[in-house]
């Protein structure tokens, strides 16, 4: 019987600890046939399981150009993530997916890209950044503004340095006031303010904004002031999910199932549906 709820078995091929409570994990399919045929779009998500604890939903934060493995990143906050935290290289976890729509990377071709992220929201942006860098000729200038509460809360810090070395890529790091360390060389301030100060041409750019609700709420007016069209401003919703395939009934935001019609929406689309996310 075809079982849409049965996960692929994955071997943990690597674990990176980013902060005291954030890790990212690299997974390989145990079934070589599945490994060969697997494909996804950046921006899609998976449902990951620690057997005995349950399942949780995360963005696939690796680039779709990286064959043979996928990565996801999580903060230790509950039953499943605590079990995933304890998992080590060589252990087996489950994966279902890819699910959802993903970012329209083809439609973004020829445009400048602005990535605005807060805290643990870097992973779902990271996959798009790598994808754009790997297809560098397809995209214009890339601006990355990434902030966290404190220096210690920033994730994928080494990759920020790597991205900054690429031509036509500007990386702006910031931490909330009080979150800096004595040797901090980045900006101090909230993502929306720091972004506005950076004076990035936003009029014809694509912006991807992911972060805590308050960051998103304050970033949108800034983008609007800078001339950004809401049809070009994207985010990825994080509604709680169980099945991932439009059955279990909990992830809807108004009339749309985030798992199937999302998680990626433009703000033009979001403004047409109720605030149910």
């Amino acid at each position: 019987m075809d079982n849409i709820y049965q996960p692929d078995l994955m071997e943990i091929a690597g674990v990176r600890q980013h902060t005291p409570d954030v890790k990212s994990v690299k997974l390989r399919f145990q079934d070589p046939n599945r490994a060969g045929s697997f494909d996804f779009r950046v921006g899609q998500f998976g449902i990951f399981s620690a057997f005995g604890a349950g399942e949780a939903t995360f963005n696939i934060c690796s680039s779709s150009n990286w064959k043979g493995s996928i990565e996801f990143c999580f903060r230790k906050v509950g039953r499943v993530t605590e079990a995933l935290w304890d998992a080590e290289e060589g252990d087996t976890v489950g994966f279902r997916g890819p699910y959802g729509n993903g970012y329209p990377m083809e439609a973004w071709r020829g445009k400048d890209l602005i990535f605005l992220g807060g805290g643990i929201a870097m992973p779902p942006i990271r996959c798009a950044i790598w994808y754009a860098l790997e297809n560098r000729a397809d995209y214009g200038d890339i601006t990355i503004v990434y902030g966290a509460r404190t220096v210690g809360d920033l994730v994928f810090v080494d990759e920020l340095d790597e991205w900054a070395r690429h031509p036509r890529v500007r990386v702006i790091r910031c931490v909330d006031p009080g979150g800096q360390t004595p040797d901090w060389t980045g900006e101090i301030g909230f993502v929306p303010t720091v972004f506005e100060r950076a004076d990035v041409p936003a009029k014809n750019a694509i912006a991807l904004v992911i972060g805590p609700p308050i960051m998103i709420k304050n970033t949108i007016p800034v983008l609007e002031r800078m001339g950004g069209a809401m049809s070009n401003v994207y985010t990825s919703l994080e509604n709680r999910m169980k099945c991932g395939v439009g059955k279990c009934g909990r992830c809807n935001a108004g009339p749309v199932y985030v798992c199937k019609e999302g998680p990626v929406f433009t703000f033009e689309e979001l403004r047409a549906i109720p605030m149910d996310y």
Binding site: Y5, F51, G54, E55, K242, C243, C248
Partner: peptide, 16 residues
Amino acid sequence: HCFDMVDEGNGREGVR
């Protein structure tokens, strides 16, 4: 028809 999905068992065996 809304449903939850949970693991029922222990660290050795169980059901989803």
